[in-house]
Nucleic acid binder design. Sequence first.
DNA 1: TCCTTCTTTAGAATTATTCCAATTTCAACT
DNA 2: AGTTGAAATTGGAATAATTCTAAAGAAGGA
Lengths: 142, 142
Amino acid sequence: MSTPAIHSDALAQKLADSGLRNTPQREFVYDALLKKRDHPTADEVYARVKTQLPGISLATVYNCLETLVQCDLVRAVNFERAPTRYCPNQHPHAHFHDESTGSTHDIELPPGLLAKIKGILPPGYDAEAIELTFRGKAPPSR
Amino acid sequence: MSTPAIHSDALAQKLADSGLRNTPQREFVYDALLKKRDHPTADEVYARVKTQLPGISLATVYNCLETLVQCDLVRAVNFERAPTRYCPNQHPHAHFHDESTGSTHDIELPPGLLAKIKGILPPGYDAEAIELTFRGKAPPSR
DNA sequence: TCCTTCTTTAGAATTATTCCAATTTCAACT
DNA sequence: AGTTGAAATTGGAATAATTCTAAAGAAGGA
């Protein structure tokens, strides 16, 4: 088969749930995110996918990434005004931006912390999403 | 006197500490942030300051805001890829983005929460800054 | 005052992202 | 199998926030 199979068809399922079509472009884009989980930018995803789908356009990469975000398979990660990065990690997690390397690390959240954080909101505030981001120096990666 | 005086010269002090000059442009920009604490964008600050300093340029507003951020008098607040907003609140606080109105609210943090959040970092991670952002529906403002 | 440095300014440049109009694809229905 | 209509892709143009640049303007110290 010509399409990647890393994702065990979670993609096809989620797309179907949203009434969207599964396409090779979407498969390869999602696959690129799963294969190298280094929070690539759209440009980086474009470069990686182009090696396998040479005809894909940057606009399509943006479209696919947006679709994956809509389907809750991928999170868009913004840090200051740097290009948006994309993350296929489904678990609740924070992000740590290493200033010296420019790299982004996932930080898993202990259970209950999100609820506790939500608890600081004054009455009447209803949070749909919480973003927790650190900036600083990360340990050298192994 | 012609320069605003809301800020009790914290500005002059902080600028001096950093070896920078105090200028009318910097005073008026800082004053605009203090007078209406609604997290304006650079464009909005530009419009407000221009009523008092008609000759100021947008580039200068950007320069002044950047300087204020460097001096730790102002925080730059980013949400997704919307234009950067500026906040003169010095206390540790989170931000709540109301999706329907586009407004940004400060959420004061209970003492100890930042330390607790910092505690979830694996050994070796050294966080210089923490950003906590909510997205959702805020109560109608009084 | 002169000199040096910092600051401001207008406009050009940058760049991530979105928009657009024209194909192409594809599933559903004859 | 052929038709159809909506969805998806494509290349290129457009957008918009921000930064850059080069020149002119202020300001403090010798």
